[in-house]
């Protein structure tokens, strides 16, 4: 039974040192004692993806996100606590629920249709020990806990499709800022292939056309499994278009290789038979805390002493 369900590759956080440097700077010069949550942005790439990474760096705190080339924007929040006790004692389950409910609220409103990157969601709970240059952090990638998806067959590579040439051409034509989530209409009989935005395809969905839809997303996973963010994508689609329940849905994880070819992008055919009422927000459970390096449920710690401690810096500078 478990062999036939679709599993997702969990996101792994990757923090550039500049993220901590900027956090320290903001904490000292700007935030001071305020520990109000702040919006940040991250990014993930589907170009030569390694693992299934979500990266943050100094630019996370910029007012407008400008993800690096071949990368896509992820929307996040940082909860930077003032003391280690607060960090420790915070109710992790309710923080995850609160984040998840905010995600669901975005899904129900039209916000996701306008800005699909809201589906690539993360948050960071952190404590900056500015004296010791130690940073405690815990990433979460909130996602509603829904029934598993039934996988209809093994994942298929895009290059094995009959109409691969046309599909590849259409995929290449998608502008990079729209590549994170979009829909590909590929009708083999009519030999018609075209790319649509989520809002164009999903408002008043046409069920006969929907049979030919590929639900595409930029897939940062290097594994056979699709990346974590597809989970939110599925939940959003079923919420937006309940008629898709019980139908076979084709998801296309767009992956580029070194030569910028889409050949190895994967397609999963899945069915969701069990309805899950995500509108009754208070009953929904959420998952998504990132396990630490020991695969336990706990935070991570990084020491930035080498690049922050003035004593160390003076030592190394001569």
């Amino acid at each position: 039974m478990t062999e036939n369900i679709l599993q997702f590759a969990a996101f792994e956080s990757f923090v550039c040192p500049t993220f901590w440097h900027k956090l320290a700077e903001l904490k000292i010069e700007h935030d001071r004692l305020s520990d109000a949550p702040k919006p940040i942005s991250g990014h993930y790439t589907n170009h030569k993806a390694a693992g299934c990474l979500l990266e943050v760096d100094y630019s996370a705190y910029n007012s407008s996100a400008q993800p690096p080339k071949f990368s896509h924007n992820a929307v996040g929040t940082i909860y930077n606590k003032n003391t280690i006790e607060e960090f420790k004692e915070l109710d992790k389950t309710s923080l995850l629920s609160a984040e998840g409910q905010a995600l669901l609220a975005d899904m129900t409103s039209a916000r996701v249709l306008d800005n699909p990157s809201l589906l690539a969601r993360f948050f960071v709970l952190s404590f900056a020990d500015l004296k010791c240059h130690s940073y405690y952090y815990w990433f979460g990638f909130p996602c509603p806990l829904t029934h598993p998806l039934q996988l209809q067959s093994e994942a298929v590579r895009v290059k094995d499709l009959q109409n691969f040439a046309a599909v590849a051409e259409a995929l290449r034509a998608v502008p990079s800022e729209a590549q994170n989530f979009f829909i590909l209409y590929a009708n083999e009989e009519l030999e018609s292939v075209e790319v649509r935005s989520l809002s164009a395809a999903l408002t008043n969905i046409d069920n006969t056309e929907a049979e030919h839809y590929y639900y595409c997303f930029a897939d940062p996973s290097e594994y056979e499994h699709p990346a974590w963010l597809m989970r939110n994508y599925v939940a959003f689609l079923l919420m937006q278009c309940p008629t898709l329940l019980g139908k076979t849905l084709k998801f296309l994880g767009l992956r580029y290789d070194q030569q910028m070819n889409v050949d190895n992008s994967l397609i999963w055919k899945v069915v969701q038979n069990d309805a899950c009422d995500l509108t009754r927000i208070e009953n929904v459970k959420f998952v998504g805390w990132e396990p630490n390096r020991n695969c336990k449920m706990g935070p991570r710690m990084v020491s930035m002493r080498d690049s922050m401690d003035p004593a160390k810096l003076a030592e190394n500078s001569v």
Binding site: F8, A10, G51, K88, K92, W289, M297, G298, M301
Partner: peptide, 24 residues
């Protein structure tokens, strides 16, 4: 760091998470 671990959170069974090992 073990002192930070949360015990109750793993009780939520989630069959949809893949166990992955990075190629590296």
């Amino acid at each position: 760091m073990d002192a930070f671990e949360e015990s109750g959170m793993l009780e939520l069974v989630d069959p949809s998470v893949a166990t992955t090992t990075r190629k590296a």
